[in-house]
Nucleic acid binder design. Sequence first.
DNA 1: CCTACCGATCGGTAGG
DNA 2: CCTACCGATCGGTAGG
Lengths: 195, 195
Amino acid sequence: MRKPKKKAAPSGNRREDLLRVCARLFREKGFDGTSIRDISQAAGMHSGSPFYHFETKQEMLVAVMEQGLEEGLRHLEAVAALKLPPAEKFRKLVRAHLETICGEGHDFIPVMLYDWRSLTPANRRRVIALKDRYDALWQKVTDELQAQGIMGGDAQLARLFTFGVLNWTARWYRAGGRKSLDEIAEEAARFLLRE
Amino acid sequence: MRKPKKKAAPSGNRREDLLRVCARLFREKGFDGTSIRDISQAAGMHSGSPFYHFETKQEMLVAVMEQGLEEGLRHLEAVAALKLPPAEKFRKLVRAHLETICGEGHDFIPVMLYDWRSLTPANRRRVIALKDRYDALWQKVTDELQAQGIMGGDAQLARLFTFGVLNWTARWYRAGGRKSLDEIAEEAARFLLRE
DNA sequence: CCTACCGATCGGTAGG
DNA sequence: CCTACCGATCGGTAGG
């Protein structure tokens, strides 16, 4: 194997660097499509070194997903705690969610959206615990919207349809495209709230 | 490698059998997570035999996607050709689309939704040609709905949001769940048409 | 975190 | 479509 070009600028936390590299590569090429050597090289390490930080490649995958969900939850829960009318809160949640899915350098949650299948059943359970909190947060806002008659139909389906609109953006959004993330967030909220 | 259990019930077209097996396995485990040996065994062949039908594994992937899109298009274009009010036509298109995405034995289009990244750039172009026809078909109905004031906002975004609601169902729908595919289709159409 | 390495598995092929 | 096989690459490890 080739030698990494540089000794890598000394960084406080190599584990974090590694995780960021994993997130980016997993998102671009998929978990199975990314080799340990790809990761090592991108992090400026030799091919055996990632295993000093993570026991297995599978551990890198869960770590990426968990970190993404935890950061996302922190953001969303802060927004959800604001005292605002439901529709206004919803708009802000939509914007925050789109940021964690399409924003510059936000590769962590997309990895979860794309590579769920690659998790072992045991690790799937670990991630589901976090995902449940995500679902509960959105379900609560959805319920509020429905109570106000701004959103109709079955409550759980309404949440899943909302996730569809938002999460699908990860597939087609490109920075520098026809619409900015702000514009898309605004239109998505309007679309979902039938305004 | 182990010997395939049976000689495989004689079938008219082994290539088609192989493609069905590929679609199912690619959907379940991903393209990179499925080995030629997985495919051979599931098809009741020996491990070198799939290459009698396809030049490379990559060719199996495009073939799955192309067949899925072609069949889907045939269905949808038949529905789109019906003389019906836009909203009614939309409802039927939603139902047909959900069938090709969640229906029993419909693994072909989900492979495209999941494993797009695994296509080589050249093959991506081949598939995009078909996907464009899909997009155009939906864009036309979306435009009709907007002309009637049943759907608002930017026309292209409205289509992408619609795709989000529909395509995302592939992630969470499970046969035998709380809602049938018919019920989901009806609610999705209502949700999108803000009825 | 590097060095040097291993066994397993991978996609693919030649020849029949 | 089977048989027998190959070179490459994979995730991971022991020892420092």
